[in-house]
Each structure stands twice: as structure tokens, then as C-alpha cells.
């Protein structure tokens, strides 16, 4: 049995992630995307329930929510944090090397995924997770 987390947490985190990524996209600021890359790294390595956004959710948002917590497996959202990290790292490298087009595309993809998750509770990375496992082991 793997770890389960409150499914409302990642959606909240995705909302902040979308705001941070939109800020990065508009300002083209290296430090904003670098900060988000660190957040993704924490989410990918330690788990999405340990990011600063998740801590805000736990301390401030969760006690105020009236809906019943829905538990979900931590592995799909953790995988999507890793996908986010890849895009953020590409954007960081693009920012340092002055590849503006690559920066815009990488941040844009990550922003689109975060927005889908926040607005429609549709986690793109989570959907990819089991499909990738299926393909990878189908030999």
C-alpha cells in the first residue's frame, strides 16, 4: 500500500503554481521560474505533500474546507511534479542561455497543465502516469 494524500491539496498547489508560472511567463524572470523549479523538485523527490504550497494548504486552507477529504494515491501527482520539474529546468536553462522562444514554450506547457489541474481538477501528468507504466512494462 502506498501513501495516500488529500486530493484537494494538489489542486490548491496547482492554482499557486499556475499563478507563479504566469508571473514567470509575463516577466521572463529567471528567479521566478528557478523558484518554481525548486518547488517542483521538492514535490518530485519528497512528495507533493511537502512543497511550500502544500504546507500553506495544510496550515491555512484545509482547516477551512467543509468538503469531505478525498484520499488519492500520491504516486501519480508526484510523477506530475517530476514532469513539471523537467519543463521548469528547460525554462531555467533557456533563460540563462537567452533562448526566449524555448523559455516561452516550456513555461507555457507547464502553465497549461497547472491551469487544467486548478480549474478542472484534471491532472495531465497523473493521466500519463499509468499509461506510461503500462507501455513501459508491456513486453
Amino acid at each position: 500500500m502506498s501513501v495516500s494524500i488529500d486530493a484537494r491539496g494538489p489542486r490548491w498547489s496547482a492554482a499557486i503554481t499556475a499563478v507563479v508560472l504566469a508571473t514567470a511567463l509575463v516577466t521572463s524572470n529567471l528567479w521566478v521560474i528557478a523558484f518554481q523549479a525548486v518547488v517542483f523538485a521538492i514535490g518530485a523527490i519528497r512528495g507533493p505533500q511537502f512543497t511550500p504550497y502544500a504546507l500553506i494548504f495544510k496550515k491555512l486552507i484545509k482547516p477551512r474546507l467543509k468538503s469531505e477529504p478525498i484520499l488519492e494515491d500520491v504516486r501519480p501527482p508526484q510523477f506530475s511534479q517530476a514532469v513539471g520539474l523537467v519543463f521548469a529546468l528547460v525554462a531555467v536553462i533557456a533563460s540563462i542561455t537567452g533562448a526566449g522562444g524555448v523559455f516561452t514554450i516550456a513555461v507555457g506547457f507547464a502553465l497549461a497543465a497547472a491551469f487544467l489541474n486548478a480549474a478542472f481538477n484534471f491532472c495531465l501528468g497523473c493521466q500519463m502516469y499509468l499509461l506510461i507504466l503500462r507501455v513501459r512494462t508491456a513486453k
Binding site: 500500500m1 502506498s2 488519492e72 494515491d73 504516486r75 501519480p76 497523473c126 493521466q127 502516469y129 499509468l130 499509461l131 507504466l133 503500462r134 512494462t137 508491456a138
Partner: peptide, 19 residues
């Protein structure tokens, strides 16, 4: 049933995401 530890079943039943 944990999907990840039953990937054969996942393919057979065409499970696309969890849960």
C-alpha cells in the same frame, strides 16, 4: 487493488488512470 502492482491486469481491463 493496487494498479501498479497488477500491471498485467491493468492492460487486460484497459485501466487508463487511477482510481
Amino acid at each position: 487493488i493496487d494498479a501498479e502492482s497488477h500491471l498485467e491486469l491493468v492492460r487486460k481491463l484497459d485501466i487508463r488512470s487511477t482510481p
